[in-house]
Design a protein around this nucleic acid. Structure first.
Ligand SMILES: [Zn+2]
Ligand SMILES: [Zn+2]
Ligand SMILES: [Zn+2]
Ligand SMILES: [Zn+2]
Lengths: 133, 133
DNA sequence: AATAATATTGTTATAATATAACAATGCGTT
DNA sequence: AACGCATTGTTATATTATAACAATATTATT
């Protein structure tokens, strides 16, 4: 039996490293630009690494921005319960780590008969700085 | 003073009509295909109509799918508080209309200092049908 | 009615985001 | 060594979305 991958491959490390350094969401083609000096020349090399990193929860995709950000929340072993705040003025994005919220959403049920295994929540508004302008 | 638009333009009506008939999310280029017989020939004509319809809450964008669905929730006068359930098997999407959930999220506050004016939540899982396969 | 401001439309081209398809290599297991 | 599978490299292409410019339509103000 082949066991589940427990380490990162070369390209995955390179991409994760770049995204972690940024501490803000990066677009795939910005990442591509950044890592070209390390040998990743094609979009697919970046997208494949991103896919895997998202799958294992090291990176999250900010869907409304088509951008990728490193997980800052040690609870997200797998990215099946994510919440973000997004400033609509400066585009600052923060991962929300609020156990009440995650408990509430993870336990959410309605009468649709659906079994929810995953959610993604994006809050929008103005951050502290932008509010006071 | 120019007052806020209170009716739909020709192209907006055409696009809304198509999306409402579908009762499932449509991609922008599917919409374009559908409405070509009505004279909309270019992507921009569709995207512009979609932008406006999303802005006024007649249509919502399913961000994780890059698709657009008509609002089924009369409460969404403006689309500043949206929640959807998405089946990862058959891709069925349903707008969640749950007042407890929307109250909880609309009142959500954390210590970030951010004032949230809007949110979008997407739940993923298996729908009733797909669960029983 | 004339003017101004705003919204909408039409059109061509192009940007930005993401995947298909195929061949080769690397690595752990049997 | 042989197998299975993940990863890599590469080229081409698909999909999603916007820029830029010109024209027309609608509404508000004078
Ligand atoms: Zn996380
Ligand atoms: Zn801000
Ligand atoms: Zn709605
Ligand atoms: Zn289903």
């Amino acid at each position: 039996m082949v066991q589940k991958q427990e380490y990162l491959s070369k390209n995955q490390k390179i991409v994760l490293d770049d995204v972690e350094k940024a501490n803000q969401p990066l677009k795939a083609y910005s990442i591509l630009y950044n890592v070209q000096k390390k040998g990743l020349k094609a979009p697919l090399q970046v997208y494949r690494a991103l896919d895997k990193l998202v799958e294992i929860g090291k990176i999250h995709k900010i869907e409304s921005r088509n951008a990728f950000v490193a997980c800052k929340n040690s609870n997200c072993v797998v990215s099946n319960a994510t919440a973000f705040s997004i400033c609509e003025s400066c585009e600052k994005v923060t991962e929300i780590n609020n156990s009440k919220l995650s408990k509430y959403l993870s336990n959410f049920e309605d009468n649709s008969g659906m079994k929810y295994s995953k959610y993604n929540l994006e809050f929008f508004g103005l951050c502290k700085k932008c509010k006071n302008k």
